[in-house]
Simulated scan of single mutants.
Amino acid sequence: MTNLFFNKVSIIGVGLLGASFALALRENGLCKTIVGTGRKEDNLRRAKERGIIDAYALDVRDICEDSDLILLSTPVGAFRDIAVRIKDILKQNAIITDVGSVKGKLVHEIESLMPERVYYIGSHPIAGSDKSGIDDARADLFDNARCIVTPTEKSNEMAREKIIYMWRRFGARVEVIDPFIHDEIYAAVSHLPHIIAYTIVNTIGDIDSKYIEYAGQGFKDTTRIALSSPEMWRDIVIHNRENLLRLLDVFKENVDRIKRLLEKKDSEAIKEEFKSARGLRERLQ
């Protein structure tokens, strides 16, 4: 594929990822008009003033008609309701994608809701931060970031290739992965760590919330992701709960093992546990 041009792109949820997506489209000359929607009109107005979007509306149906590409950039819990609300106004050959970090059953469900000749291709760019607003949006957010594309056996080849090409134009390193395998991977390396970070902070609160004032950089680094949107992460963990319940059992086994070693004052075994973890962590650059 040598060219790609979307006449109209609709972004549902103009936050950090949605706004950065819009800026990347503009930077790469991949669209003519970008429209957006969201819950807060003030945010949408600022996005328009900054040139991130060309126009906005508060009703999702008002922005999706005649769109060539629709991006879902809301908490994943809203995806299905949005798809139901807009499916009867979408033009033929329109493509829907997203930036959600849960795929699995959700991909198949949304795909099944699409009318004939409207195509859904799941995407998950591994980019962003604990920030969530347009003030931190930038066109190069996806540059050199991994982006997982999760088609199914029913996916339209043209739509799949357009989405892959688009992310590569943004500078992303695209990998195609089965939606269910995606959820197994990211339950382990993303969703579980978020649960643990929230739990560590809440543990301090249970002991004495004033202790938080004494935390150093190590605590800040370990728990930075606990600053992430509670609404977004509520939806993620609920939609990936089966994988997370299994992983929480594994995590509990690891915590229980450390507890037993502490009870026995087995310093050598504790050192080996830490050494093993350090060795695995060193593989992450």
Rank of each mutant, 00 (worst) to 15 (best):
I53M: 00
R224Y: 03
R138T: 11
A172C: 10
Y56H: 08
G133F: 05
L69P: 08
T33Q: 06
A188S: 14
P179Q: 02
R260A: 12
I89Q: 00
L248I: 15
R80Y: 12
Y56V: 00
M232I: 14
K275R: 14
E49S: 11
F219H: 02
G171W: 01
K105P: 00
R85I: 01
H124Q: 03
H191I: 12
Y56T: 02
G13F: 07
R283L: 15
R26E: 12
E157N: 11
I34S: 04
V102C: 08
S123R: 11
L4M: 13
D183Q: 04
I225V: 15
C31N: 07
R45L: 10
H239E: 12
I225M: 14
I200S: 02
M166Q: 06
D249M: 04
A187T: 05
V237D: 01
A57W: 00
E263C: 02
L192G: 02
M114P: 09
L17A: 05
A197C: 06
I86E: 00
I212N: 04
K259E: 14
I195M: 13
G216I: 08
E273W: 09
T152C: 04
T150W: 09
V237A: 04
R50N: 11
G100T: 04
I185D: 00
G218C: 10
A139I: 03
D88E: 15
D221Q: 08
F21A: 06
N3H: 11
A19E: 01
K259N: 13
K91C: 02
G216N: 10
T152R: 07
F21H: 08
I258K: 01
L244A: 07
L25N: 07
E153C: 02
E27A: 15
S123Y: 13
R46K: 15
N43R: 07
I96T: 02
N28E: 12
I96L: 15
I185L: 10
A127G: 13
E111F: 10
D66I: 07
N43W: 01
N144A: 12
G18T: 06
R281A: 10
I134T: 02
A139C: 04
E272C: 03
L69W: 10
K105T: 11
I126Y: 11
F21P: 05
P193F: 14
F170M: 08
I96E: 09
A57L: 03
L247C: 09
D136L: 06
K162R: 15
D256R: 12
E282V: 08
N43Y: 07
N243Q: 14
A226G: 05
L192H: 03
D206Q: 15
D66R: 09
D81S: 13
S190N: 02
G100H: 05
A159R: 08
G216K: 06
V174I: 12
G122A: 15
W167M: 08
G77H: 02
Y198A: 12
A57E: 12
D42W: 01
H191E: 08
V118G: 09
G29F: 03
R146H: 12
T97Y: 05
E157S: 12
L90I: 07
P151D: 02
T150C: 14
V84H: 07
T37N: 11
T33Y: 00
R169V: 11
T97C: 04
I148T: 12
G13M: 04
A78F: 13
R39P: 01
K91L: 05
F180S: 03
Y119S: 05
R46N: 14
E272R: 15
R26Q: 15
K154F: 13
D143F: 11
S132T: 14
H108M: 03
I89V: 14
A159I: 04
